[in-house]
Simulated scan of single mutants.
Amino acid sequence: MHTVDQENVSATLTVAAPAATVFAVLTDPTTHSAIDGTGWVQEAVDRAPLTEVGQVFRMDMYHPNHPNGDYQVANQVQVLDPPRAIGWLTGQEKDDGHLEFGGWTWRYDLAPLGPSETEVTLTYDWSAVPQSIRDYIHFPPFSPDHLTNSLHHLAQLVAGR
């Protein structure tokens, strides 16, 4: 099931694992490529677990429509409420080390449905994206099915824990 709002899209899936297990997978940047499943997210540059708001983790990316094909994003943790919620802003690190964010966020909300099941909602929000970026990037930059597929990948990873 997914919903598309004016400025965000979300999907929800029940995962057969405790919330703490699901949260542990989400806080591990090395799992994000497998969770994404599109081939856009390549490899975690920063492999340390996500433990605090403000923490930055970089990911190697690939997209056929990107001017360079291969590029890197810098994500900054915005929400970290174990084992209930985790979210981050996506941007880029400039040559001088300054971070610049595009205005879109990824967020996972976890609701325990008992000791071994968790309802996971993944939300992609672009409400803070300035018009200058909207002029050349269509939002959302993927079909709504992407979020559902991503949650299924997460469920598979969690099942292997």
Rank of each mutant, 00 (worst) to 15 (best):
P83V: 02
V4M: 15
F23C: 03
D70E: 14
L50R: 05
D46C: 04
F142E: 03
R161V: 12
I133C: 04
H146V: 06
T105H: 00
P67E: 09
V120T: 00
E43I: 02
T14M: 13
D109T: 15
I137R: 11
T21R: 14
L110K: 01
T90R: 11
L122N: 05
T14G: 03
T51P: 03
Y108Q: 00
K94C: 09
G103A: 10
A11T: 13
D95I: 01
V4T: 14
W126P: 03
P112M: 02
S143R: 15
D145Q: 14
F23K: 05
I35Q: 06
L13Y: 01
V53G: 00
D60Y: 07
L157G: 03
L151R: 03
F139K: 05
T148L: 13
T27Q: 02
T12Q: 11
A111G: 11
Q92C: 10
W88E: 05
T30V: 13
H146C: 08
P140I: 05
Q72S: 02
T3R: 14
P18E: 15
W40M: 13
S150K: 05
D36A: 13
G114L: 10
F57S: 00
T38D: 05
V158R: 06
P49C: 11
T38L: 12
R84K: 10
P49A: 10
V25G: 03
G103I: 09
F139H: 11
P141R: 08
Y62V: 01
L113Y: 07
H2E: 10
P18F: 02
E119M: 11
G91V: 10
H63L: 03
T3D: 14
T105A: 06
V9G: 04
V77P: 07
A17N: 04
P67N: 06
K94W: 00
F142Q: 02
N68E: 07
S150A: 14
A111H: 12
Q42C: 07
P64L: 07
A128T: 13
S132F: 11
L154V: 05
H98L: 12
R134P: 00
R107P: 04
A19D: 08
T90P: 01
S127C: 06
L26S: 02
Q6M: 08
W126T: 03
V158P: 04
G160L: 15
R84P: 02
V45K: 02
N65G: 11
I35M: 02
G69V: 08
L147A: 10
Y108I: 11
V129H: 04
T118P: 04
P29Y: 12
E93H: 05
E100A: 13
R58P: 00
P67M: 06
I35V: 14
V53T: 12
D28E: 15
Q131R: 15
G114H: 07
Q78G: 01
E100R: 07
Y136L: 07
I35G: 00
W40P: 03
E117P: 04
Q92F: 14
D81L: 12
G39V: 09
R107M: 09
I86V: 15
A11L: 10
D135F: 06
D46T: 11
T27L: 05
T121H: 08
G87N: 00
Y108E: 01
